[in-house]
Design a protein around this nucleic acid. Structure first.
Lengths: 183, 183
DNA sequence: CACGGATGTGGCAGATTGTCGCATGGTTTC
DNA sequence: GAAACCATGCGACAATCTGCCACATCCGTG
């Protein structure tokens, strides 16, 4: 372990205040310096005074998504390690995030240890565990919707049209949390 | 469209023979040279004589998983574009695959157009507007159910359990939708 | 500023799903 | 052969969910 005189700076971007506060405290207790942003926009304004070494980003927030923040965070600090942390996890957003340079991707709920483990000891290994059960229909539907949604740059109306589904129905599905992916 | 004298070589690694054959034919029809491997091991032995430019890999096969193949394929051809294509998709394997250098990750069922779109996405292509509509959720669900049903030799009760769905609901779905395909 | 497109919501009637229950037919096990 | 299991088909009913219509905001382009 490298012992720097200054603590590593940890930025939490999430619009769930309760979640942020709890996580912040847990992380601070482990010796990090933390900061909380309630939106992507707010996070950007903080970068002048707080240059993070680690960050967790939420996807679904009022305003811009955490994914859009990845390039900007990396511009400020190319060595930053970024963990996407969201309750609306999907394969397509995970793929996009990693391609943009995120270090890892976790679905909420996740505890502090899991979060730090992903940020610290994350080395790609080809022997990941492969699910032995196929996806549930609910999960498959969620993934498919997310995929089409990203293909349409998040345009809900266009996605609904492409899927031959009523826009109202799509909105309702998106508001609900995806079925938990269990191993 | 760039006209090379030699066609791009496309490697399909999947232990589902029917799937491989259908995909191979569809891809060949679009001007690629194709090869099929039924396992990761078999794919490796082919690399001496068939150096692929594009590849789709399955995750769950007898023997090694497609993910373990990624580094080896990239060693042979650093510019190779790799698409993970699996019926046992999960976020964690998607993250690993992308970290190891896969180009993209799709959950089966996916049609040929989607597959090629993902693999060509990084190639200069002027008019990449969303060509035709993606599968409807209903159709996707139907295909998935059929696939799992087959894996369970037509056993409805077992299929319902595997899908985390109530048997009664599965019965009703099967009884109803006789398959509705159209564009 | 008017116009078209996207989005967030509320409200409803009708369709779908989650559960229970029960009966039948086939296999396996003493 | 009878008991014990399973898979399957189907009726019924309440809880959800979906398709649709109706606004009310917000943009960005003319």
């Amino acid at each position: 372990m490298d012992t720097n005189s200054t603590a590593l700076r940890f930025l939490i971007v999430d619009d769930d205040e309760t979640f942020s506060r709890v996580l912040s405290r847990a992380i601070k207790r482990r010796g990090y310096e933390t900061a909380i942003a309630g939106s992507a926009e707010q996070a950007l304004t903080m970068l002048d005074t707080f240059r993070p070494d680690l960050a967790t980003l939420d996807l679904k927030m009022g305003g811009a998504s955490g994914i859009s923040l990845i390039p900007q965070l990396k511009a400020v600090n190319p060595d930053i390690r970024i963990l996407i942390l969201t309750g609306y996890a999907s394969i397509s957003t995970a793929v996009e995030a990693i391609k943009l340079g995120a270090t890892d991707y976790l679905a909420k709920p996740a505890d502090t240890d899991q979060i730090l483990a992903k940020l610290n000891g994350s080395t790609p290994d080809p022997d990941v565990e492969i699910a032995d059960k196929p996806m549930s229909v609910g999960r498959l539907e969620w993934e498919h919707i997310q995929k089409v949604l990203t293909e349409h740059e998040g345009n809900i109306s266009a996605t609904a049209r492409a899927l031959g589904m009523h826009r109202r129905t799509l909105q309702r599905k998106l508001q609900k949390r995806p079925v938990r992916e269990e191993h």
